[in-house]
Amino acid sequence: TIDEIIKALEQAVKDNKPIQVGNYTVTSADEAEKLAKKLKKEY
């Protein structure tokens, strides 16, 4: 679900690790936030 994706992003940001979500690779908190907002609009 979208919530699980967002939790995974938040965890990756805390661990400061890049995370791959679908076609996106998120490497920073800023990118994670942008991706989360984008995904919320889509779903």
Rank of each mutant, 00 (worst) to 15 (best):
L35K: 00
A29K: 07
K37E: 14
T27V: 10
E31L: 03
V21F: 10
Y24S: 11
A36I: 15
A12M: 14
V26W: 02
D15H: 07
Q20F: 09
K37G: 07
N23R: 05
E4D: 13
K17F: 15
I19L: 07
K37P: 01
A12L: 09
E10C: 13
K17Q: 10
D30T: 08
Y24Q: 13
A29D: 04
I19D: 01
K34R: 12
N23I: 08
D15F: 07
E42Y: 10
I5Y: 04
V13C: 09
T25N: 13
A29F: 05
N23G: 15
E33M: 12
L9K: 00
K37S: 12
L39H: 00
L9E: 03
L35Y: 01
A8L: 13
Q11C: 04
L35V: 04
D3A: 14
L35M: 05
Q20A: 10
I6N: 01
L9Y: 00
T27F: 11
K40Y: 07
E33T: 06
Q20T: 15
L39K: 00
I5K: 01
T27N: 15
I19C: 13
Q11A: 08
E31G: 02
K37A: 14
N23W: 04
T25C: 15
Y24C: 15
E10P: 00
V26M: 00
N16Y: 05
E4H: 04
Q11Y: 02
K14L: 09
S28M: 06
V21Y: 06
V26G: 04
A36F: 06
D15T: 08
Y43M: 14
V21G: 04
L39D: 02
T25V: 15
S28R: 00
K14E: 04
K38F: 11
P18D: 02
N23A: 07
N16L: 05
K38A: 11
I6L: 12
K14Y: 03
L9V: 03
I2S: 03
K7R: 13
K38C: 15
A36N: 02
S28W: 03
I6T: 02
Q20W: 09
K37W: 00
E42V: 07
K38M: 13
K38I: 11
E33R: 12
V26L: 03
T27S: 14
Q11D: 07
V26R: 00
K37C: 14
A8D: 02
I2F: 12
D3R: 10
E31D: 09
K14T: 07
Y24W: 12
N23S: 11
Y24I: 15
P18R: 05
V13E: 02
K17G: 04
Q11K: 09
K38P: 00
P18N: 03
T25E: 15
V13F: 10
E4M: 11
K17N: 06
D30N: 06
D3Y: 11
Y24H: 14
V21R: 00
A12K: 02
E42L: 13
A29T: 07
E10I: 11
K34E: 14
G22P: 10
P18K: 05
L35A: 01
Y24K: 12
I5C: 07
E31M: 06
T25A: 09
I2P: 04
L39N: 01
I2Q: 01
I5P: 01
S28N: 13
L39R: 00
K34F: 12
Q20I: 14
Y43Q: 14
V26S: 04
A36Q: 06
Y24M: 15
T25W: 15
S28K: 00
K40M: 12
D3F: 14
I5Q: 02
Q20Y: 06
A36K: 05
K34M: 12
Q20L: 09
K40I: 12
V13H: 05
V26N: 03
L35W: 03
E42Q: 12
K14A: 08
N16I: 02
I6S: 01
Y24P: 07
V26A: 09
D30C: 12
I19E: 01
Q20G: 04
E33H: 08
D30Q: 12
L39T: 01
K40W: 10
E4Q: 11
E42P: 02
D15R: 04
I6P: 00
K7P: 01
A12G: 06
K41I: 12
D30V: 13
T1H: 10
L39I: 08
S28P: 00
E10S: 03
V21P: 01
S28Y: 03
Y24E: 13
N23H: 07
N16R: 08
D15C: 08
T25Q: 14
A36D: 01
I5W: 10
V13M: 14
Y24L: 15
E4R: 06
K38G: 05
L9G: 02
A12F: 15
E4T: 06
N23Y: 02
V26Y: 03
E4Y: 09
E42D: 13
V21S: 01
Q20C: 13
D3S: 12
K7H: 11
A36T: 07
T1Q: 08
I2L: 11
K38L: 12
V21H: 02
A32D: 01
D15G: 06
L39Q: 01
K41V: 11
A12W: 15
L39M: 03
Q20V: 14
E10L: 12
G22T: 01
T1D: 10
K38V: 06
N23M: 07
K7D: 04
A29N: 03
L39V: 02
K41T: 13
K38E: 13
E4A: 10
E10K: 05
K17E: 04
L35H: 01
S28G: 14
K34H: 10
D30K: 09
E4S: 09
G22E: 07
Q11M: 10
K41L: 12
I5D: 00
D3K: 11
Y43L: 14
K34V: 11
E31P: 00
V26E: 08
K41P: 07
K38T: 07
N23E: 15
D30S: 10
I19Y: 03
D3I: 12
I6R: 02
D3C: 15
E33P: 00
K41H: 13
K40S: 08
V13P: 02
L39P: 03
K7Q: 10
K41C: 12
Q20S: 13
A36L: 15
K34W: 13
K34I: 10
